[in-house]
């Protein structure tokens, strides 16, 4: 899918733990490979590419693809059309949701393997489970889009913040079609923390595309935390991302 996946696995030390970790590694890689084969637009022979070229019709596609498409449409409704799998040129682009779904499935696989903790970082979108070490939480940093070496926030990913997805309008060109007519997004980068990675990913994309209205509607409607970077570098954050007043 044109991205790199980093996996961290925490578990008991020793041979038993090592074999579990290797099995987990293999399972996760397998999951991503399957998703890549079917859904990557970067592979000419993937099912999604063939549909984009017109070689097969959507109605003849596999059930997994059609389910994925249906889910994307569901999210289109929930975000009032701001998030949509249809590109401006009519090509079906499920990349907005596929990566998240892959991470989600891989996370499910990992969760069932009895690890003490695991984290998946797929191209900047992070899903965690368990703890890295006993007594501590998985900590994730959100990169500062204006100063690449710096990190804006260090957030413990617990509970309903176990998934974080970040969308930007600066990396890799404007691949998010903004819902604002003719205007670039007011946000340079939006990071959404949620209980599941698909929700986080879709809403992050929607907020970049939809602007302030979508940001406010999303925080009202879903139980999420948002860290947004405006074009001039200023920050917006929901209460859960604020340092507690000491």
């Amino acid at each position: 899918m044109g991205t790199v996946v980093s996996l961290r696995l925490a578990g008991p030390a020793g041979d038993a733990g090592e074999s579990v970790r290797r099995a987990a590694h293999a399972a996760a890689r397998d999951t991503f490979r399957r998703w890549d084969e079917r859904f990557s637009l970067y592979r000419a022979d993937s099912e999604l590419s063939r549909i984009a070229r017109g070689d097969i019709r959507l109605t003849d596609a596999s059930r997994e693809l059609r389910d994925c498409y249906a889910l994307a449409l569901d999210w289109r409704d929930r975000t009032n059309g701001v998030f949509t799998p249809h590109r401006a040129d009519g090509v079906l682009d499920l990349s907005g949701i596929v990566k998240a779904l892959a991470i989600h499935e891989a996370g499910g696989v990992l969760a069932g393997l009895g690890l003490a903790g695991w984290s998946i970082n797929g191209g900047g979108d992070i899903l965690v489970g368990g703890r890295p070490t006993p007594g501590s939480d998985w900590m994730s940093g959100i990169v500062d889009p204006l100063h690449r070496g710096a990190v804006l926030a260090g957030v413990p990913q617990t509970g309903r913040m176990r998934a974080v997805a970040t969308s930007g309008s600066a990396e890799r060109g404007e691949h998010i079609w903004t819902a604002l007519p003719g205007a670039p997004s007011p946000y340079r980068q939006v990071s959404v923390f949620a209980g599941d990675i698909v929700t986080a990913d879709v809403i992050a994309t929607a907020i970049v595309a939809g602007g302030e209205k979508t940001l406010d509607e999303s925080t009202d409607r879903w139980s999420i935390e948002v860290l947004a970077v405006l074009r001039d570098g200023r920050l917006l954050a929901t209460p859960g991302l604020r340092r507690p007043a000491s």
Partner: peptide
């Protein structure tokens, strides 16, 4: 739960050393 303007100092942060994952826009 609305997102409001914050200063960088007001955002949750930790030493980078203690962070295991870096999140950001797709690279």
């Amino acid at each position: 739960n609305r997102a409001a303007p914050v200063l960088r100092e007001e955002v949750l942060s930790a030493q980078s050393a203690s962070v295991q994952n870096i999140g950001g826009a797709t690279y």
